[in-house]
Amino acid sequence: MSFTVEDGGILTTVQDTGRSGFRHLGIPVCGAMDSLAARIANLMLANEVSSPLLEYTLTGPTLRFHADTVICLTGGTVTARLEDQPVPCYQPVVVQAGQILKLGSIRQGCRGYLALKGGLHVDHIMQSASTYLRACIGGFHGRSLATGDNLPYIPYPLSPTLSIDWLPSQDLMYNTTPSAIRILPTTDHEQFSDDSWQTLFNQPFGIDNASDRMGYRLTGPTITRKDQTERLTQGVTLGTVQVPHDGHPIILMADSQPTGGYPVMGQVISVDIPRLAQMKPGDKLRFEPIELDNAQSLLRTQEQYLQRLSIAAGYKWKDIVHG
């Protein structure tokens, strides 16, 4: 069975945890921009964390389901209605055949995720279902969803009166206490003057309208490079902060290229990538340095949270199935 797209929303694509192992061939990892929200959506349904799901930007799609299933919405706070009834986020919700789910505007954040029990059934290209728009591969025909598309899934019937009202603790999910985006130092430190480092860590930057899944271009103060000479290409990855000739930093995101020739000021730590992914053009951000040991500790804490969530969700679904 499948659901029919009645409205594709803004940039709704199929994503998963990414296309690993092909960067040496020039293929980006891609995958969900907010990997934390995507993983939580699947874990809440006791899916594999790599199960394909939908990612939408700013405004979500409208879908008509043709078979019973269970869904979970995560990521940015979205106005969602199922047959005119409000749909909560971070909670499994039963959907019956024939019902219409309308995902409106994201009120807080930038990207939302929709997972289905059992995942979406789309072809895998290079071991991943993630959509790489520039190459038109993966996901649903390598493109964003449009009106009239039909995406298959395996039905999962449950009683519509069943209450699945448990919620995970969200205290550690986005680690929202710090307001700054934390970065690790790089070997290019000497490429920039002391004044440039003062600017990076003491001035706010904005996200430019030209930003996309490949990278966030930043507006605001310019960073001065000591040497404008072209340099040899080096490896870059998700979260790399590059400084091109114009002095306006670029933060590489999920669809980033494998290599780049611009000097690098830092690397955004893994636990802050989801917060960064939920920022949109016009939002402001600040940078803050962090030591590697602290970054690793934060990542371990987040992974421990996800492990606890996986165990708890597994027990919940066993109760539902056998209860």
Rank of each mutant, 00 (worst) to 15 (best):
M1C: 13
S2V: 08
S2A: 14
F3A: 05
L11G: 06
V14M: 03
Q15T: 07
D16Q: 05
T17V: 14
R19F: 08
R23A: 12
L25K: 14
G31K: 02
A32E: 01
D34C: 08
R39K: 15
R39F: 06
L43S: 07
N47K: 05
V49K: 08
L53E: 04
G60D: 07
R64H: 09
H66Q: 13
D68Y: 09
T69M: 05
L73Q: 06
T79C: 15
P86T: 12
V87H: 00
P88R: 11
Y90F: 11
Q91L: 11
Q91R: 10
G98C: 12
Q99G: 08
I100E: 10
I100Q: 05
I100V: 11
L103P: 02
G104E: 13
R111C: 04
G112A: 11
L114Q: 01
L114D: 04
H121P: 06
I125M: 08
Q127K: 13
G138R: 01
F140I: 08
H141Q: 13
A146F: 14
T147V: 15
P152V: 12
I154H: 13
P157S: 14
T161P: 09
T161Q: 12
I164Y: 06
I164W: 08
D165K: 02
D165F: 10
D165A: 12
L172P: 02
L172G: 04
N175H: 15
N175S: 15
T176L: 13
I181H: 03
Q191C: 12
Q191T: 11
S193D: 15
S196L: 05
W197P: 03
T199P: 03
F201P: 07
N202W: 10
Q203F: 14
P204Y: 00
D208N: 13
G215K: 00
P221T: 08
I223W: 05
Q234Y: 07
V236K: 00
Q242C: 08
V243E: 00
V243R: 01
V243M: 06
D246P: 06
L252T: 03
M253Q: 07
Q257P: 04
P258R: 01
P263L: 02
V268Q: 04
V268L: 09
S270W: 07
V271M: 07
A277K: 01
A277C: 09
A277T: 03
M279I: 07
L285Q: 09
L292C: 15
N294D: 13
Q296P: 03
Q302T: 10
Y305N: 04
L306Y: 07
S310D: 14
A313D: 10
